[in-house]
Design a protein around this nucleic acid. Structure first.
Length: 204
DNA sequence: ACATTAATGTGGT
DNA sequence: ACCACATTAATGT
């Protein structure tokens, strides 16, 4: 699997500017909705999800991030508080850099600014795709929106060999669908030859 | 190794 | 979409 690195700054550089190692257990919160944005975070090991809950208590997953990906940085350019939680899905090791140090790092490394813009573009693109496919009432179209994006983002180009490493529950919470609907829609897609399911693993 | 929890799959409303 | 339940997989102690 092609590893994406958005945003991935050399750890040595992060340490020079005051980056600190942090480790978390599965289910720990890195930050919560409403917290002030104070740090740039970059994942060294593990996976996190960014979520929030609607008024009925249903979880909505905004994004799932893995190794060499960063999070929290868009908020560093605003004087705003987080609008979602970031929760560990596995044990996680990450490097965090305070806002001020992060700004200093960017000032002294113009190239990083450019990479950051590319990263932001990627994130906005994801949101656009999701918004567009979520406007459909058809669950299969919603799933396709997510799957096409994930495949273009993570996978090498190949036919039905991209392993979607998300649970059906996670997919449901990313697309605003029910688990049962996701399960049934995936099976339907398998019948139509649009993907393969190999003992519960989704190959797209 | 066993108990508990989470994920998956099905059928019915 | 929602609910209830059976089966299976993953996790905790």
């Amino acid at each position: 699997m092609k590893t994406i690195s958005c945003m991935n700054i050399n750890p040595e550089l992060l340490y020079i500017y005051g980056g600190e190692d942090r480790s978390y257990n599965s289910k720990d919160y890195v930050y919560r909705e409403g917290d002030p944005a104070l740090y740039y975070y970059q994942i060294v090991k593990g996976r996190v999800k960014q979520n929030s809950y609607n008024e009925e208590g249903k979880e909505f997953i905004h994004n799932i991030l893995g190794e060499n990906q960063s999070f929290g940085e868009p908020m560093l350019f605003l004087e705003e508080h987080y609008i979602m939680n970031t929760v560990c899905l596995t044990s996680v090791e990450l490097i965090r850099l305070s806002k001020n140090n992060f700004m200093e790092l960017l000032e002294k490394n113009p190239k990083l600014c450019q990479e950051m813009n590319a990263c932001f573009s990627q994130r906005i693109y994801f949101k656009e795709i999701m918004l567009q496919s979520m406007s459909s009432q058809n669950p299969i179209l919603r799933l396709k929106g997510l799957l096409n994006y994930l495949k273009s983002y993570y996978a090498e180009d190949c036919e039905q060999c991209f392993h979607v490493e998300f649970t059906r529950q996670q997919i449901a919470n990313l697309t605003g669908l029910r688990v049962e609907t996701v399960i049934r829609a995936l099976k339907k897609m398998e019948k139509q030859g649009e993907l393969k399911i190999d003992n519960r693993k989704i190959l797209y």
